[in-house]
């Protein structure tokens, strides 16, 4: 109130208007094209005022659209094509050279529980939604060139439309699964010194020696973190796009899309490798996520420390009250 009175006093005291009267200066006659070019070079939006309550409509020219188009039509195509085709090519090469990785000692016939039902169910929820997300996403990016000519516009639109719907809705199980996955497995995925050893040994893929590993080896930890962090980022940016203008403006959405696209392509590449090694690439691996029971020898070869740990746990589990032999 005091400030108000002060303002009042000031207004009354001085012929305030005289100070506010700005003589009209010559108008800026810089050419619109010039300004537009400058802004384009600077990458700035030309923003004004508009009476409708829609701030995005007040953007007169949005040169970033060009940059986004370049990203979409060059960078993303390139990254996507290189990543997806590259990985598929490498895997093919790998398969040609090494063939299927067998259990060196042959199946033992005895199994041990690697993943419980919750873990497996969650994995498949994430995996199945990921596959649909991947296919519908790849279709959005490449379908126009690869599928449209075959299917024709109407069928392709229907496919893409359903793909888009699936892409939007399956993001929820995917994101939920990621959260669960993180909670279930983060404990076993914290990197440690052993991972360096494992990596030095090339994960056993290059030589024939199997490096030691606990429940998850460095490669699996990599997949975990790629999935959780990459998937998280892809999901977050995806939600920015699914709720247009609720979270950010047009520039933010363009960035969100770029991050979403590139990360998704890289993730696709990584996950393709994961799928390979978890299925055709390695004997015994698929069991971990199908029945949850893995062959003892497979486990010995790939996760020796985990086997030891599990056995130790099992021993205590047999007779929790009993003292270990020779303890006295």
């Amino acid at each position: 109130m005091r400030a108000l009175l002060l303002a009042v006093a000031l207004l009354c005291a001085a012929p305030a208007l005289a100070q506010n009267t700005v003589p009209f200066t010559a108008r800026d006659q810089t050419s619109a094209e010039e300004l537009e070019l400058q802004r384009t070079l600077q990458g700035g939006t030309i923003h004004g005022r508009i009476s409708i309550p829609d701030d995005k409509a007040a953007n007169l020219v949005q040169p970033e659209g060009r940059a986004w188009r370049d990203f979409h039509n060059r960078t993303l195509y390139t990254v996507g094509a290189v990543a997806v085709c590259g990985v598929l090519g490498l895997l093919w090469l790998f398969y040609m050279i090494k063939g299927r990785i067998r259990i060196a000692a042959g199946p033992a016939g005895r199994t041990m529980t690697r993943f419980n039902l919750l873990e497996r169910a969650n994995h498949w929820m994430v995996a199945s939604s990921f596959i649909v997300l991947m296919l519908s996403g790849l279709n959005l990016t490449f379908g126009r060139w690869l599928i449209l000519p075959t299917l024709g516009p109407e069928t392709f639109t229907m496919l893409t439309m359903w793909g888009k719907v699936a892409h939007n809705f399956l993001s929820f199980p995917f994101a939920l699964g990621l959260v669960l996955m993180f909670l279930l497995w983060v404990r076993d995925n914290i990197p440690n010194a052993l991972d360096l050893e494992w990596l030095k040994a090339g994960g056993g893929f290059i030589g024939s020696r199997h490096p030691q590993a606990a429940r998850f080896n460095a490669g699996q930890k990599g997949v975990f973190w790629i999935t959780v962090l990459g998937g998280g980022a892809v999901a977050t940016t995806g939600y920015v796009l699914v709720f247009p203008f609720f979270i950010t403006d047009i520039a933010g959405q363009q960035w969100a899309h770029m991050i979403h696209g590139v990360l998704a392509m890289l993730m696709i590449a990584a996950i393709l490798a994961h799928i390979y090694i978890g299925s055709v690439g390695m004997e015994g691996a698929i069991d971990a996520m199908s029945t949850g029971q893995v062959d003892y020898n497979w486990a010995r070869e790939h996760h020796s420390l985990w086997v030891d740990e599990e056995l130790a746990k099992a021993r205590t589990a047999i007779d929790p009250g009993a003292k270990t032999a020779g303890a006295d």
Partner: peptide, 13 residues
């Protein structure tokens, strides 16, 4: 900025 935009939406809705 965020507030302004949501204002616009409220009005429109």
């Amino acid at each position: 900025m965020l507030i302004k935009r949501s204002d616009g939406k409220v009005a429109r809705q």
